[in-house]
Design a binder for these strands. Structure first.
Length: 958
RNA sequence: GCGAGGGUAGCCAAGCCUGGAAAAGGCGCAGGACUUAGGAUCCUGUUCUUAGUGAUACAGGGGUUCGAAUCCCCUCCCUCGCACCA
């Protein structure tokens, strides 16, 4: 049967909302539970993968409601940055790809006009996220509290946060190197090319400037690999290029003219004083830094004056360009004829092996030249060859014995050490450059400019790190691997630039308006703001009211009420209300986020809380969820590889998707998105709905019997299982119990002829409640159909009632008997016309009883049990059989728990199986007769009765 | 390389922290039932062997233990992160 899920969803979402189930208000009579998912960046349409974590959050929130908590689940969005600006500008420019993407995801054409404005973009997607995703997925979030990082009131909160950071001495300034246009100032270099017209993929690289003394001047080379200086054998100059001589303090440097311009931006007192042709420098000898050897200057055409300084030190062992150029130079007759160099000098230049990399020989550069079959300088394949050698060298390389005191170090470590050593010795300086040409929108070239007064947050602060680390030990952080690992992450975290300039949306830095707080720094303390945003959204407080005093009072409880009221213009009553709200809801119980947050968001979230808020407001839990990945890793939001979320919801039904997320795998593994799998969850829901509907409409009602006890016991066991699983937020285990085990139990109950109205009603009630967190719409629909009161979403899950292990065990036994019969029929290939079951002789039960008693006293072993049995006169008659059996039981019982074995002993197997004779006969399609082995006149032609043991009736097929 | 996670049946995936029964559940596959307005449903089976038994598995190797998928060591393979990007 096909159900109209989307109608069901709409119906209940409306009713929940009409009845304000999602609203969370302070209620001092109830314990609170506050949870969020890390809000998403407003960067376009989301995909089905994102809903995984969001769904967990809602499901956990719903479970918490059902177990007595007053739950606050607020949502918001993060729009700081230039994403919206860029999207708007692309819409304005009628970027076809983008417009196509928008339309395909359901953007109405008449909205495109709105999207030409950045804030229009933000508002548009805020609306999409809330209304098309979260509400449609049935989330019970308190929408009144929705906030976005670009809302003015949010900005006031962030400014307050930064004031507190400053008070805590965690803000400081130091120089920083940023891309800038000479006309427009700092610009954002990113792939969307918002500020720039060319070079969006450029990255900032740190070069080390190496100074080669040459009489009274310095040749200055820029290198990315200062660790290779021990391999320097010559120096490259492009003979065709005209270089500049610049005055840098007392020194005279030679660099390309482009480099001279860039250096002016990054260093003080740079002045161009002259020019010199590359050709004229060939044959010079210069002193290489660190190794202090004189090396010759050779010509090389690959020296690009636009890259670095246009001068290059040559390390042929590890630089493919150098290797191939050196080979070329050695064969070039012009070296002697034109430059007048001696053959001896040329021959003396040989590569020095300096770095060992596993998988490479002495000269990694040579290996790559061969691998890429590069024959001459200028081969375009050199770019890749270089990349490969650099990467492998950096990550896997070790310095060889030729590298002086750096021998044996990993390259990663040696790199900084050697750079620092040369800087300290005055032989090197740092220089920043972009990896490719970047041009500003205004047409000017963009270069790296030194910013002297960049602000940082000092996450490296040891005291803060230690405090945070210590607090983490008390937190509920899942998975446990992350709980253990977070200390390392916190330690690794250093200072971080927290403001930027240029074309960015965000909150102004409170201490200097020219700065805008950057995107990570303004989203660390924000969960706290959800306790306040309500009042701003409702207009009860205005951004102007939200001063430092205001937040100090409501959050930190600083100041006198009357005084603060006067200063902020907020009446005392409201101030108190807000303060109490904040104190009631905070701390945050769960912050749930994708695994990408483990190294950035979560640490700063924790550290900001620690830096600003008192101990009682520190977060209590972090939950990390892994991803839904694309089949060929292509469900990224920008590529449009995935189906839009509303389409998927329509196709599968929201609850089927929620169940899929909850059950397909643990939270802590990546899952490949597979529509067929989602469909199987839809079918499972169909089946459950069908089953429940049948039960509801069924007219029959027969008196209770053992099977009713069994069903109630099972369901109470399941309640316990679910409560235990949810302690760890294990939705998967919860879903297995609810959607598989409980359904199976209902089926078995039916099969066993159970039809008692009251039992079924009780069971249904529990079952539907268990469904509520994961599949709320279906649960609500069934709850309603079953005639239960109010909403299941507002109901309370009962505590587990009576659990009868003997009732549960009895049914297990019946199932085992059926399985055994089937097994024998199959193996023996017989079609029985008559089945006889023999239950164990009573003395065997007694042996087990003894064993159990002895186990309880912790005295169980083979000799004692045997002795104990032999002290019983009746048993002694059976001497040999008893001792053998006792031996077996002693071993078996010592390996299992008392709880496991007790039902075997307690159960009256004969009575149970007799009562099931009719059932077994009909199920097996063969008449079944039950005897006890102790009966005197039993039918036992094959002498089977004696092999029966408790828990394992003997079986005869005829 | 450093850091983290992982390698369980045809596939996905529990179990591993807290060692104690071929190993949940799902998918797929096979047989049967019921039906063919369905991406159906129900039952049974799905390592080998076998009157319900027994044997053997948890990347590979070694160790601890009465007993290991689970704890320890080594090796191989896979995935992710390595920063200013949210």
């Amino acid at each position: 049967m096909a159900y109209d899920y989307s109608e069901m969803e709409k119906k209940w979402q409306t009713k929940w909302s009409d009845n304000e189930l999602n609203i969370a208000n302070r209620d001092d009579s109830k314990p609170k539970f506050m949870l969020i998912f890390a809000y998403p960046g407003v960067t376009g349409y989301l995909h089905v993968g994102h809903l995984r974590g969001y769904t967990y959050t809602d499901a956990i929130g719903r479970y918490k409601r059902m177990t007595g908590y007053n739950v606050l689940f607020p949502v918001g969005t993060h729009a700081t940055g230039n994403g919206a600006i860029s999207l708007a500008s692309r819409v304005s420019n009628k970027d076809e790809d983008l417009i196509d993407y928008l339309i395909r995801n359901g953007c109405p054409e008449d909205k495109l006009e709105q999207l030409k404005d950045p804030m229009g973009v933000v508002n548009f997607f805020n609306d999409v996220y809330v209304n098309d995703y979260w509400k449609k997925f049935g989330f019970l979030a308190d929408w009144r509290r929705f906030t976005c990082t670009l809302f003015p009131d949010y900005g006031k909160f962030i400014q307050w946060q930064f004031k507190k950071l400053k008070d805590a001495n965690l803000l400081f300034q130091k120089p920083y190197f940023a891309p800038a246009c000479p006309n427009c100032g700092p610009v954002a270099v990113d792939a969307s090319e918002t500020d720039i017209s060319k070079g969006g993929n450029a990255e900032t690289q740190e070069y080390t400037l190496l100074k080669f003394k040459c009489k009274d001047k310095y040749l200055v080379a820029a290198t990315l690999r200062p660790e290779t200086v021990y391999g320097q054998v010559c120096f490259w100059v492009n003979p065709e290029v005209e270089y500049k001589e610049i005055k840098k303090g007392e020194e005279t440097w030679i660099v390309s003219s482009q480099a001279a311009e860039k250096l002016k931006l990054q260093m003080n007192n740079i002045e161009i004083v002259g020019t010199i042709l590359g050709h004229d420098m060939i044959g010079w000898m210069c002193e290489a830094p660190m190794i202090h050897r004189d090396i010759p200057v050779f010509p090389a055409a690959f020296c690009n004056p636009a890259v670095g300084t246009g001068l290059v030190t040559s390390v042929p062992s590890d630089a493919p360009d150098d290797w191939i150029s050196l080979e070329a130079v050695k064969k070039d007759p012009k070296m002697i004829s034109e430059y007048g160099l001696s053959q001896e000098l040329i021959d003396s230049v040989v590569p020095i092996s300096i770095i060992s990399i596993s998988g490479y020989g002495d000269f990694p550069a040579k290996d790559m030249i061969d691998k890429f079959s590069i024959k001459e300088p200028g081969d375009p394949k050199l770019v890749d060859a270089k990349k490969q050698v650099y990467k492998d060298g950096y990550h896997m390389g070790k310095m060889k014995d030729t590298c002086g005191k750096f021998a044996g170090m990993r390259v990663e470590e040696a790199k900084d050490k050697m750079k620092d050593a040369m800087i300290a010795a005055g032989e090197a300086e740092v220089f920043h450059d972009l990896t490719e040409e970047v041009v500003c929108r205004c047409g000017q070239p963009v270069h790296i400019k030194k910013i002297d007064d960049q602000w940082f947050i000092n996450y490296g602060d040891q005291e803060l790190t230690d405090k945070t680390s210590e607090h983490c030990k008390t937190m509920d952080i899942n998975p446990t691997e992350y709980y253990e690992n977070i200390h390392g992450v916190l330690n690794w975290f250093r200072e971080r630039a927290c403001v930027r300039q240029g074309n960015w949306l965000g909150t102004k830095f409170p201490f200097d308006n020219k700065w805008i707080i950057e995107a990570i720094s303004d989203s660390t303390l924000y969960p706290l703001y959800y306790t306040i945003s309500l009042y701003a959204n409702e207009g009860q407080i205005k951004p102007d009211n939200m001063t430092e005093d205001f937040f100090d009072y409501v959050v930190l409880e600083k100041g006198q009420l009357s005084d603060i009221s006067e200063k902020t213009g907020i009446n005392e009553e409201l101030l108190e209300k807000i303060r109490k709200d904040v104190q009631y809801w905070y701390p945050l119980d769960i912050n749930l986020g994708g695994k990408e947050h483990m190294t950035v968001h979560f640490p700063v979230f924790l550290m900001n809380h620690q830096a600003i808020l008192p101990e009682k407001m520190q977060p209590r839990g972090i939950l990390v969820n892994w991803y839904i990945t694309g089949k060929k890793s292509k469900i990224s939001k920008s590529k449009g590889g995935a189906q839009p979320i509303p389409g998927a919801a329509q196709k599968f039904g929201v609850d089927a998707m929620r169940l899929y997320y909850a059950h397909v795998a643990s939270m802590f593994v990546d899952v490949e998105w597979d529509e067929d799998i989602v469909m199987t969850y839809r079918q499972r829901l169909d089946r459950i709905i069908g089953t429940v509907e049948d039960l509801i409409t069924s007219e029959s009602d027969i008196p209770k019997s053992d099977i009713d006890d069994w069903l109630m016991s099972r369901f109470n066991t399941h309640i316990t299982e679910i409560r235990t699983a949810m302690e760890k937020y294990d939705l998967r285990a919860t879903a297995t119990v609810t959607y598989y085990e409980m359904l199976n139990d209902i089926r078995w109950y039916n099969r066993r002829g159970g039809k008692n109205k009251e039992t079924l009603n009780n069971a249904l009630r529990i079952w539907i409640q268990c469904m509520m967190p994961v599949t709320p719409h279906v649960a609500e629909e069934l709850w309603n159909k079953a005639g239960f009161e109010n909403f299941v979403s507002a109901s309370q899950l009962p505590d587990a009632d009576v659990i009868s292990s003997s009732a549960e065990y009895g049914e297990e036994l019946i199932r085992e008997v059926m399985a055994d019969v089937a097994q024998i029929e199959k193996v023996a290939n017989v079609n029985a016309e008559k089945i006889v079951l023999y239950t164990s002789a009573a003395w065997k039960v007694n042996v087990m009883k003894f064993a159990l008693e002895m186990k309880e006293e912790n005295k169980l072993d083979i000799p004692s049990l045997t002795k104990r049995c032999m002290s019983d006169e009746n048993m002694r008659k059976n001497g040999k059989a008893v001792s053998e059996f006792a031996k077996k039981i002693a071993t078996e019982f010592s390996r299992s728990s008392i709880e496991e074995k007790r039902p075997i002993v307690d159960l009256d197997e004969t009575a149970l199986l007799r009562s099931a004779e009719e059932f077994l006969s009909s199920e097996l399609g063969t008449p079944v007769k039950v005897y006890s082995a102790d009966e005197s006149d039993l039918y036992d032609p094959q002498n089977k009765a004696k092999i029966a043991i408790p828990g394992r009736p003997a079986i005869l097929l005829e």
